[in-house]
Amino acid sequence: MSNSGKDSLSRDASLEQGRAAGEPPARANRVSKEYVGGKIVALDDVSLDIRENQVTALIGPSGCGKTTMLRLIAGLEYPTRGGVEVYGQPILGPGPERGMVFQAYTSFPWLSVLKNVEHGMKIQGLPRDARRARAEKFLKLVHLDDFADSYPVQLSGGMKQRVAIARTLAQNPQLLLLDEPFGALDAQVTWEMEEMIIEIIESENKTVILITHDIQEAIYLADRIIFFTRQPGKIKADMPMEFKGGRRFLRKEDLLSEPGYVDMEKLLYQMMREEIQGRVS
């Protein structure tokens, strides 16, 4: 026990060093990931650098390897070829500096909502009171403070997902890995959550990798959009959101009137159509 605690500390220090040396929060170096002995190529020779304090959106047709990319960075899987690094350190497994919100529901059913949100902080050994206060803060952010004592079975799908988001944020990771975090939420809650994410990254300087199938959401949240092609997954386009000029919009509607927004949306729809038509032929 004490051994592993020491390990993670020394690991943290080396991450800190890498960060000071200007290493990117995540880097994929000619990564390929094959499944079923090479019959399925989820990722094919993909290289990318994630930039610090940026929101990078991964989009692309279903099954193109977005989740796979995120799982490699989370350390839940290893590449077949190439390498993946966090702050210049090769990834040897999952770590609390890389918090993840999964595509599936992952609240612990035996814990109350509040205890769920506290869980990550508990693992990191935060004292009880600090934990409680922070959990309550994030529950409020996701509008679930009235449900602190409920169990996950009592929540709707969207509410469960908000618990997962609050839990990951409360854990305070440097790198936030979000796998279609709002996929199950209705439109109104989705944009509330999107604006919340903007608020958090503005105030806490987080690096975010976001997978989404919603083009508008990608443009709204991302500073950079990486478009993946259909299998085998490769990067089709890597587009900084230049028209935003480095600004983030706290209100989603402000983005819509921005010159350049419509062109970007149109471009992404065209790319998506190209990929889908590729499937038909």
Partner: peptide, 12 residues
């Protein structure tokens, strides 16, 4: 996913 999400929280 339950186990993996604990792992991404740094669980031993």
């Amino acid at each position: 996913e339950l186990i993996e999400s604990a792992q991404t929280m740094g669980a031993s």
